[in-house]
Every structure is written in C-alpha cells, then in structure tokens.
C-alpha cells in the first residue's frame, strides 16, 4: 500500500471491457502493464497493471481503443510524487501531450 501511494500515477483496468489487444502494454513507458493469464467473460486475456510504477502519463488511456477500459489517476499532492520519480516515468510524462 505504501509503495503504491508513492507512485505519481495509478491505473485501473476494467477487465470486462478490455479485449486484450496489448496496445497499452506496448505503449506504457515504464512498462508496468502486461497481458495476464486469466481469461475474461469474452475469453480475452486482458491487460493487467503490475500494481506499482505508474507515472500517470495517460498514454495507455489514449492508445486503448475501448472508451472506459482504462482509468488513469494522478497524485494530487506534490510530495507523493516526489518520493518516487523513476527515469522511465519522466520520459512517459514528456511523451504524453494530452496532459
């Protein structure tokens, strides 16, 4: 829990809406999304968040073709983010123009 709180971003994936295309896995700059083993309702192996390391850049949201499969959150207080700023996360931030 503490480790997750220190991340600058947070990610939720609706595994029922996800069709397992894998574009978010490819796009994620800090590489914290992978395709899981579990099959969903439709028989797709869906995207799964590693649980930590999200920078909140939001690129996974943009590359995901489903309207609501991915929800991205970002840390509100500056201290939360400052404690952990992995290099990959910085890169992700700069590549995400929509923020």
């Amino acid at each position: 829990m503490e480790a997750q709180k220190r991340d600058r971003g947070l990610l939720y994936i609706d595994t029922d809406e996800c069709k397992g295309c894998g574009l978010c896995v490819e796009a994620c700059p800090p590489k914290v999304i992978h395709i899981g083993e579990r099959l969903n309702h439709y028989g797709y192996r869906t995207a799964v968040y590693a649980g930590s390391g999200c920078t909140g850049c939001g690129i996974c949201f943009l590359v995901c073709p489903e309207p609501g499969a991915i929800t991205v959150l970002r840390a509100t207080s500056p201290q939360v983010g400052a404690k952990r700023a992995p290099a990959a996360g910085v890169e992700g931030e700069s590549s995400c123009a929509s923020n």
């Binding site: 829990m1 971003g9 929800t71 959150l73 970002r74 923020n99």
Partner: peptide
Amino acid sequence: ELTSDYTVVHTK
C-alpha cells in the same frame, strides 16, 4: 484508502 491522494485524469 488508495485513491485519497489521487485524482482521475483519464477516464471514459
């Protein structure tokens, strides 16, 4: 507990 410090930036 998890989301108290976070705000949603991208959602449907």
